[in-house]
Nucleic acid binder design. Sequence first.
DNA 1: GCCGTGGTCAACCGTTTGGTTGAAGAAGTT
DNA 2: AACTTCTTCAACCAAACGGTTGACCACGGC
Lengths: 118, 118
Amino acid sequence: MADPLSRVFSALADPTRRDIVARLAVADATVNELAAPYDVTVQAVSKHLKVLEDAGLVSRSREAQRRPVHLEANVFDLMTKWIERYRRQAEERYRRLDDVLAAMPDEPVTSPPEGTPS
Amino acid sequence: MADPLSRVFSALADPTRRDIVARLAVADATVNELAAPYDVTVQAVSKHLKVLEDAGLVSRSREAQRRPVHLEANVFDLMTKWIERYRRQAEERYRRLDDVLAAMPDEPVTSPPEGTPS
DNA sequence: GCCGTGGTCAACCGTTTGGTTGAAGAAGTT
DNA sequence: AACTTCTTCAACCAAACGGTTGACCACGGC
């Protein structure tokens, strides 16, 4: 799964990972701190963080033996752009459909007259 | 994976599925039409559509033996809300950090005076 | 140097995923 | 009724996922 968008969506498809992101939005934290509330091992959380890091959602710096995890919020834009694009497109389509319905005269409409009308 | 948000994110974590959504934003389509451009079997695409449907991203109506697939754009809001919430929170955090840095006097800052301030 | 702490790496395990093939439903056509 | 078309269901397979345990590495403190 090479492409960035897939990695981001996939990373956020897990509730634990989303919760980690939610908590990192409040403050940076270490792996142990992040692991505390969940009833899984620290290793499992470490794996989750690797997934988030590969998706570019998170970065780890070094600070003595601690590895504080930091949220990289800018990657959200990637998703937002994708989503907004197609949502807008779909909405536009509904709008056009409404126009068609509104402009519809009382003709029964069997087949279009000719070509594609502008 | 019961929760709706996980289903939506997971559904969009696949490039083929995202492409299907992109094409459905332009116009409704049947399974066969959707499957045509990809070099996988129709069955595989049918499975993809099931995933999208379970996520609420897509609906299928019945029309003779055809099952036109329709994009349900409103589910996007679920994601957008989630994303925006934490992006905003993170940005707010940066803003506050900037304030702290701006308000920082020339003191060297070695250790906090006492306890946890406010 | 040795120990404790914080974190990762490696191997393994059960389940899910994305794909296949083959059979079967469902609805028009003749 | 027989046939074709569009679609899904069922069984299977390899790969990926989320979790575990156990060993290991990188520090700082005695």
